[in-house]
């Protein structure tokens, strides 16, 4: 499941979509990290609520969300199979050597709720922010240019390379190649090598063309930052929400 990096119109017009990315990124990231720090069971309903409310501000459909939640991660499944049986002392139910333990079960509950709440926030964030906006926001919070430039350039070529790879595999298939035994590793390595060589060759041409248009001469200025009061109000809401959750977790 690959997103085309395209923001739909309702999402772009939504509250989150219109929120200045340079304030949205810190605001939502703060909440995401706050979620990651929560351990108290009693706070879990609030995480779900906050995530759901945030998602409702995104203008994205429920279908969009469900489509992305279908793959809950192999890791989570593995943990669901291990934790309740291995971790803790309080045995709830036993069948031979298998014992369902309370502590493990509760830990699993916390992990699952946190995982999905964070996922919902991430989907809301990326569903309403384009990658160029994201890069500007990252630059504004002092992420080094090396990372942001690399991010934008990589993004620029990624879809092209994915379709190149796809065409190479089709061409190989037409010559009888099937990835159905370990022997396939050699042609697959050749395909990868070919892709690396042609990417390199293309990068030389890209660089020459960019240099001719003055790349690297000056530091590119950030677009003018012109937030409206609503941008700050939203940020304040998210800071307050995060602060309350942290306060509850660590002090009360």
């Amino acid at each position: 499941m690959i997103d085309k990096g395209y923001i739909n119109k309702t999402a772009a017009q939504s509250i989150l979509g219109r929120w200045e990315a340079r304030l949205k990124l810190p605001g939502l990231m703060l909440l995401i990290f706050t979620f990651a720090f929560i351990r108290d069971l009693r706070l879990l309903p609030f995480l779900v609520l906050a995530a759901a409310l945030t998602y409702s501000f995104s203008g994205l459909s429920l279908k969009h969300l469900i489509k992305r939640m279908r793959m809950p991660g192999f890791f989570l499944v593995a943990i669901a199979l291990i934790l309740p049986f291995w971790s803790g002392q309080t045995i709830l139910w036993q069948l031979g050597p298998l014992a369902l333990r309370l502590e493990g079960l509760l830990a699993l509950l916390v992990i699952t709720v946190k995982f999905f709440s964070i996922l919902i926030l991430v989907i809301a964030l990326f569903g309403t922010t384009t990658l160029p906006q994201m890069a500007i926001a990252l630059r504004a919070i002092r992420i080094p240019w090396l990372i942001t430039d690399l991010l934008l350039f990589t993004y620029r070529y990624i879809y092209q390379l994915l379709s190149d790879l796809n065409r190479m595999r089709i061409a190989a298939r037409l010559r009888g190649f099937r990835a159905n035994s370990f022997n396939a590793i050699k042609p697959l390595a050749f395909i990868t090598g070919t892709m690396l060589v042609s990417s390199h060759n293309q990068s030389e041409r890209v660089f020459q063309a960019m240099t001719l248009r003055g790349y690297g001469n000056t530091k590119q200025p950030l677009p003018i930052f012109s937030p409206i009061p609503a941008d700050f109000i939203l940020l304040a809401v998210y800071i307050l929400l995060s602060a309350l959750l942290i306060l509850f977790q660590f002090i009360i």
Partner: peptide, 19 residues
């Protein structure tokens, strides 16, 4: 540009599965 194109190539290649 070179690092970016290679990063993109690695990204694409990481979707290859070895049987």
């Amino acid at each position: 540009p070179r690092a970016a194109l290679l990063t993109a190539a690695f990204f694409a290649a990481s979707l290859i599965h070895i049987p």
